[in-house]
Amino acid sequence: MRNTEKLQTGCLLTQISVPKWRLSVVQDLADWLTCWTTRKCFLTTKSLAFLTALVTYPVRVFFLLGIETLIVTNAAGGLNPKFKVGDIMLIKDHINMPGFAGQHPLCGRNDEKFGVRFPCMSDAYDRDFARIARETAQELGCDSFLQEGVYCMLAGPSYETIAECRVLQMLGADAVGMSTVPEVVVARHCRMRVFGLSLITNKVVTDYNSTEKANHEEVLETTRMRTEVLQKLVSSFVAKM
Score class of each variant (00 low, 15 high):
Ser122Tyr: 05
Ala30Thr: 14
Lys213Glu: 13
Ser158Gln: 11
Val204Ile: 09
Thr136Lys: 08
Thr9Met: 15
Phe114Cys: 09
Val176Pro: 04
Glu164Arg: 05
Phe114Thr: 04
Cys142Lys: 02
Gly115Tyr: 07
Asn96Thr: 06
Pro81Thr: 04
Asn3Asp: 08
Ala76Met: 08
Pro182Tyr: 07
Glu217Ser: 13
Ala175Pro: 05
Leu197His: 00
Leu33Tyr: 15
Pro105Asp: 06
Ala53Asn: 03
Leu197Met: 11
Asp87His: 08
Arg127Leu: 14
Ile88Ser: 01
Glu135Met: 13
Val18Gly: 02
Thr4Tyr: 14
Ala163Gln: 02
Met178Ile: 09
Gly156Ile: 13
Val194Ile: 09
Asn3Ala: 14
Ile91Glu: 02
Lys92Val: 07
Phe83Gln: 01
Asp31Arg: 07
Cys120Lys: 03
Ala76Ile: 07
Ala214Glu: 13
Leu168Lys: 01
Thr180Gly: 03
Pro98Asp: 09
Ser24Ile: 09
Val55Pro: 00
Arg39Val: 09
Thr73His: 05
Val205Cys: 10
Lys113Ser: 11
Glu148Gly: 02
Ala163Asn: 01
Leu106Ile: 11
Ala124Gly: 00
Gly77Phe: 08
Ala76Cys: 10
Ala137Val: 11
Ile132Lys: 14
Pro98Tyr: 13
Leu233Asn: 03
Arg2Asn: 15
Phe83Leu: 12
Pro105Ile: 09
Tyr159Glu: 04
Ile95Arg: 05
Arg131Asp: 11
Ile71Trp: 08
Met97Thr: 13
Leu51Ile: 00
Leu233Cys: 06
Ala49Ile: 10
Ala155Pro: 00
Gly196Lys: 01
Ala76His: 02
Arg226His: 03
Asp93Met: 07
Thr211Glu: 10
Leu51Thr: 09
Phe50Asp: 10
Glu5Pro: 05
Leu79Ile: 05
Arg226Gly: 00
Val229Met: 12
Thr136Gln: 11
Lys40Ser: 13
Met89Asp: 00
